[in-house]
Simulated scan of single mutants.
Amino acid sequence: MLTDSDRFAFETRRHHAFASTGNAYDASQCDEAIRTGDTLIVLTEQVVAIAMTWPFAVTETCGKLHALAPPKPGEDLAALARSLHVRAADFRHAADLARRLGFPLDPQLIPLLDMPAE
């Protein structure tokens, strides 16, 4: 018998929009509807982030969320994602969304994402 994930050719993504990065941080700590790997969006601060215990921005601006430490020498996106207990696909999705919204990406992520600097 096929499960829903076997039957459909798409992946569901959960997005959560907030008025501020402070609100996003607080909600990611206590709202059970927000799960690790979900995308957090704060339009007013031009921030797109990934939810986890310490939610972190993929955008140049992080506000009250965490910024990523510089990648270790030789570290690729898959290794970085594993170290944060999220998926590389979560990074790619959040970065793509930030780009579509016109928000500058965290410059240290650009080489890991194989995206043009724009």
Rank of each mutant, 00 (worst) to 15 (best):
T59F: 05
S28N: 03
F56L: 02
P104E: 04
D96Y: 09
Q46P: 00
A9H: 09
S20I: 12
A94S: 13
P104K: 04
P107F: 04
W54R: 14
L105T: 05
D26T: 13
H15T: 08
T61C: 10
M1T: 07
T61P: 02
D26R: 14
L112E: 05
D96K: 15
A9S: 11
A94F: 03
D38K: 03
F8W: 06
D96R: 15
R35M: 06
A98C: 07
D90E: 09
Q46L: 08
P107Y: 03
D31H: 01
C30E: 14
R100N: 12
R13F: 06
V58E: 10
M1C: 08
A17S: 13
T44L: 14
E75W: 05
D4L: 12
I110E: 00
T3R: 06
L109A: 05
L101Y: 11
A79Y: 04
A49W: 00
T36R: 15
L65T: 01
T53S: 12
D31S: 02
A79T: 15
R99N: 04
F10Y: 13
D76K: 09
A81M: 05
L65I: 04
D4S: 11
L65M: 01
P70F: 04
T44W: 03
L2D: 12
R82K: 13
A24W: 02
Y25K: 13
G22I: 06
T61L: 10
A19I: 01
A19S: 12
G63F: 00
T3E: 13
E75F: 05
